Amino acid sequence: MTETPNEPTTPLTRRPVFWLIVGAVLLGIAVVVVVVLGMSGGRSPEPSPTTSAPTPTSEAPSTPPSEPPATSDPGTPSAVVIPTDCAGIYTRDWAPELGGLVLNPAWSEDEPLWGSNDRGAITMLEGTAELRCAWVQEAGGGDVGIITNVAGLTPEQQDSMAEYFPGAGFTCYEELEGTRCVIEETTDAGEWGESHFLREGVWIATRWANVSPEGYTHDIVAAIFG
């Protein structure tokens, strides 16, 4: 039996069918790429997250009625001259009417004695008071006394105090060409009160306990303003 020899094999790359398959694959890949690019091109980039929230804004709280602005600068008070010693704020000697109280005894010099018990008023006096006159017990202690501060105020400070006192429980009224604000109470320990007189940049602040001679503040006003 005679065998028929095999025909020579044609290389794959020379076969038309191979290139048809390759072309179809490349075309499919190109279509996929175009579709993907078209879909992504229509989207906007995601915004990056913020690193901090906006800070809310609010108005600063107003000063409470019991807290007038503190001041350590007396500013430029009026031209009214405040006496440099207690003798200059009276037109007469008040000792006989004050039941044996002594003016500024030695022990009182180092004590924080103010012409008010009100926290807001003391805050202002700490920066503006130029004179303190304390009628108290010579040996110290006791529940009887009268303490006066004379302070120099700017017009703004005077207006601030005139607006402050009514809100702090004082009764205010016009007197002797100025504004006077008073408060008085009776407790188990007796009577106590305060008188604050404001005029032309001068503040006469007086606190008293169980002694309140008639005309005391009027006399100080007469001595300072004439």
Score class of each variant (00 low, 15 high):
Glu174Gly: 03
Ile122Trp: 06
Pro105Lys: 06
Gly99Trp: 10
Cys133Arg: 01
Trp135Cys: 09
Val33Pro: 01
Ala205Glu: 07
Thr50Gln: 04
Pro105Ile: 07
Pro16Cys: 03
Trp192Glu: 13
Arg132Leu: 08
Pro69Ser: 15
Pro96Gln: 11
Gly167Arg: 07
Tyr90His: 11
Thr187Phe: 01
Val17Met: 07
Gly140Val: 15
Gly23Gln: 02
Thr206Pro: 04
Pro61Lys: 04
Ala222Phe: 10
Cys86Asn: 06
Gly167Asn: 11
Thr9Lys: 14
Pro166Asn: 04
Val221His: 03
His218Met: 06
Glu184Ala: 15
Glu185Phe: 13
Glu7Asn: 05
Ala87Cys: 03
Pro11Gln: 00
Asn117Gln: 14
Leu198Gly: 11
Val32Asp: 02
Gly115Arg: 06
Leu113Val: 15
Ala209Trp: 13
Thr10Lys: 12
Ser52Thr: 13
Glu97Gln: 14
Thr9Gln: 13
Val17Pro: 07
Glu126Asn: 15
Asn6Tyr: 05
Pro83Ser: 09
His196Val: 10
Val36Asn: 00
Val136Asn: 12
Gly226Phe: 08
Pro155Lys: 10
Val150Met: 14
Cys133Gly: 02
Arg199Ala: 03
Thr91Glu: 09
Asp93Trp: 08
Ser48His: 03
Gly38Trp: 06
Val17Ala: 13
Thr217Pro: 04
Pro47Arg: 02
His218Asn: 11
Val22Gly: 03
Phe165Ser: 05
Ser44Trp: 06
Ala168Glu: 02
Val182Pro: 05
Asp73Met: 00
Thr123Glu: 13
Glu194Asn: 04
Val22Thr: 04
Gly152Trp: 12
Ala168Met: 00
Ser78Tyr: 03
Pro8Gly: 06
Phe165Met: 14
Ile89Trp: 13
Glu191Phe: 02
Thr171Ala: 15
Pro213Thr: 10
His196Asp: 11
Pro213Phe: 08
Thr2Arg: 12
Trp135Asn: 14
Ala24Asn: 10
Gly215Asp: 10
Glu59Ile: 00
Phe165Asn: 06
Ala53Lys: 01
Glu59Arg: 03
His196Arg: 07
Phe165Trp: 14
Glu3Thr: 13
Glu163Ser: 15
Phe165Ile: 04
Ser160Thr: 13
Pro166Gln: 02
Phe165Asp: 06
Glu46Val: 15
Ile146Gly: 07
Gln158Ile: 01
Gly41Phe: 03
Arg92Gly: 10
Asn149Gly: 13
Ile204Leu: 04
Ser62Asp: 10
Ile220Ser: 08
Ala162Lys: 15
Val211Gly: 00
Arg199Val: 06
Ile82Tyr: 03
Gly190Ala: 08
Glu184Gly: 14
Gly141Cys: 09
Glu174Trp: 02
Ile220Trp: 07
Pro68Asp: 11
Glu7Met: 05
Gly167Asp: 10
Phe197Met: 01
Val150Leu: 14
Thr148Ser: 15
Pro74Val: 12
Trp203Met: 05
Ser212Leu: 11
Ser195Leu: 07
Thr76Ile: 07
Thr206Tyr: 01
Gly226Glu: 11
Val102Trp: 00
Arg199Asp: 05
Ile183Lys: 07
Glu7Tyr: 01
Gly178Pro: 07
